[in-house]
């Protein structure tokens, strides 16, 4: 079991195999939801003209659900490389904010562990980890473990969907039939409830929600997530200062 301690005294952060295992296990319900969308990606990728191997390579490297699904919209015989890169970048900008919010764990680790773990940052594993961090867990391995869990589910589902696309397409196309579209809402909502500390948070949450909803209506992609997050953060900072 590898363990590393931080620089600043009083707030020790470790990075253990046990933490990695716990993060992985706790993330499995989310992994199952991701699995359903991974199958959809695999099927659609092949239909968009990718070979199963190409779809798998993309999931192993780019590893970003919403971005990959959006990339399929642009997939063509002559790949618009720059448009694809720009789209992926814009869709993933929200991760800048999510990564920064993990500072209590990650700035206290050796850079190799920090920047390796960050490769596996996803919305789902981040939400789970940031909650664990807020509730006082000191083992940053949890963040890597939960990310690895999503990685395993996303990639195995991509492979399954891409290689058996014609078969899968006949029986499984729409995750909403199993209520899986709602699963993510339910998870994020529950995690939000766990963040509740009192009425003083209401204005922050209200602004975040309104801003996110407005930008959801007018902007494509996932801009609404980062803009809602920024708005809530700014309101909170102005009030606390």
């Amino acid at each position: 079991m590898k363990t590393s301690t931080n620089k600043s005294p009083g707030t020790r952060v470790v990075f253990s195999g046990k933490g990695i295992a716990e993060g992985f296990l706790k993330c499995i319900p989310l992994g199952i939801g991701v699995f359903a969308y991974g199958i959809v990606f695999g099927v659609l990728a092949v239909q968009a003209g990718m070979t199963p191997l190409q779809a798998q390579i993309m999931s192993l490297t780019v590893f970003a659900g919403a971005s990959q699904l959006m990339a399929l919209e642009l997939w063509a015989d002559h790949l618009p490389v720059l448009a694809l890169t720009a789209t992926v970048f814009a869709v993933n900008l929200r991760h800048l904010l999510m990564g920064a919010a993990m500072r209590d764990w990650l700035v206290r680790l050796p850079p190799s562990k920090t920047y390796f773990s960050l490769f596996f940052l996803t919305d789902e594993s981040w939400a789970l980890s940031v909650r664990e961090m807020a509730s006082g867990r000191k083992d940053a391995g949890f963040f890597l473990g939960s990310g690895l869990c999503i990685y395993v589910f996303w990639n195995s589902a991509t492979g399954l969907g891409a290689t058996m696309s014609s078969l899968v397409d006949r029986y499984f196309r729409d995750p909403s039939v199993l209520g899986l579209d709602f699963a993510f809402t339910a998870v994020f909502l529950s995690l939000l409830i766990f963040f509740w500390k009192g009425k003083s948070q209401l204005p922050v949450w209200l602004i975040a929600g309104i801003v996110a909803w407005l930008f959801f209506l007018v902007l494509p992609g996932k801009w609404y997530i980062i803009l809602g997050g920024l708005a809530g953060g700014i309101v909170g900072a102005l009030r606390d200062a």
Binding site: A101, V130, L191, L192, V204, A212, G229, A231, G232
Partner: peptide, 10 residues
Amino acid sequence: HVPASILVAI
């Protein structure tokens, strides 16, 4: 305030 705000925004 970012984590909870992002959750709300999602």
